[in-house]
């Protein structure tokens, strides 16, 4: 299991990287390497040109600015995990990261790599959907922003053009007082989830749900933000009745099957995890309100 031959490029700037991407045939961009390198070792991926972004320093940044978190594509998962600001302002991201692989893989793995690999149940992909982030894409010709909801076009396929590079993301931070939860079911610690559900819940003064965001992944090629569930929760008292209704709704969604997991089990897990995520997020919202 050795990678097939390629020509290696290690640009120092985004401009250089874009130039390479625009001019080389069958090129792949290497970020943290925790997904692409195994695929190259298995020879599932055999690029002719490998464009390594690890020396493009301008792609690694992490800033809380007002109500948004700005993250570079080459920011390591460990830097997100250990950032006190992320922990404080966006605990759902910190919690999601604790499920991402293992320490040694988070040390190398990047936000951009995870988003572009686009595993259907990857935790960072789920949280990006929950927060409703915007992706910043650059190419030799210019730059554009892609709302995260429009990023995934098919199974593990993004809407990036072949000459485009993900440079970073802007993630709206949850408003103060929001309760969060990240519930997933994976076979073992660190595995990709079979199904994951994250949630943000805000309560009004009467203790009713004022707003709810839910991201559910593992059912299809990308996470969904089930509008029907989010809408129905608004104005409800957080409690078993509301959670059950949301769970039942989730249990009715379409789901894919593979050699290991049936569609029925994915739907079942969606149902259970929606309940659990809403329960925990509501409890935390309540605590935040009382505290």
């Amino acid at each position: 299991m050795k990678p097939a031959p390629f020509v290696y490029h290690d640009p120092r700037t985004v401009a250089e990287a874009c130039d390479l991407l625009a001019t080389r045939e069958n090129a792949r961009v290497l970020a943290g390497g925790q997904s692409l390198m195994p695929m190259m070792n298995f020879r599932y991926a055999m690029p002719d040109h490998l464009i390594d972004l690890n020396r493009v320093d301008e792609l690694a940044y992490l800033r809380c600015e007002g109500e948004v978190l700005r993250v570079g594509a080459m920011t390591r998962q460990r830097d997100l995990e250990f950032s006190p600001e992320v922990g404080k302002r966006c605990p759902v991201l910190r919690e999601a990261l604790s499920h991402v692989g293992h320490r040694q893989t988070r040390n190398r793995g990047t936000l951009g790599g995870s988003l572009c690999h686009l595993d259907p149940s990857a935790e960072l992909v789920n949280v990006a959907a929950l927060l409703g982030g915007t992706l910043h894409v650059v190419s030799k010709g210019g730059a554009r922003d892609i709302p995260f909801a429009e990023f995934a076009v098919a199974y593990m396929t993004t809407s990036l053009q072949p000459d485009e590079l993900l440079a970073g993301a802007t993630l709206p931070l949850p408003a103060r007082g929001r309760g969060h939860a990240f519930a997933e079911f994976a076979r073992r610690h660190g595995d990709f989830a079979i199904v994951a559900c994250s949630a943000l819940i805000g309560l009004d003064r009467d203790g009713r749900i004022a707003d709810a965001a839910v991201a559910l992944s593992g059912l299809g090629h990308a996470p969904v933000r089930p509008a029907s569930i989010e809408r129905a929760l608004r104005g409800e008292k957080p409690g078993a009745a509301a959670f059950k209704a949301a769970a039942a709704e989730a249990g009715g969604f379409d789901a894919v099957a593979d050699a290991y997991v049936t569609a029925a089990y994915r739907r079942h897990l969606a149902r259970v995890l929606v309940y659990r995520a809403l329960e925990q997020a509501s409890m935390r919202a309540l605590e935040a309100g009382n505290g």
């Binding site: 078993a240 959670f243 059950k244 769970a247 039942a248 249990g251 029925a264 089990y265 079942h268 149902r271 259970v272 309940y275």
Partner: peptide
């Protein structure tokens, strides 16, 4: 979960 059938719905 398959063997449990409806019982696996638990709290949901």
């Amino acid at each position: 979960v398959e063997l449990l059938g409806p019982a696996a719905l638990g709290r949901t």
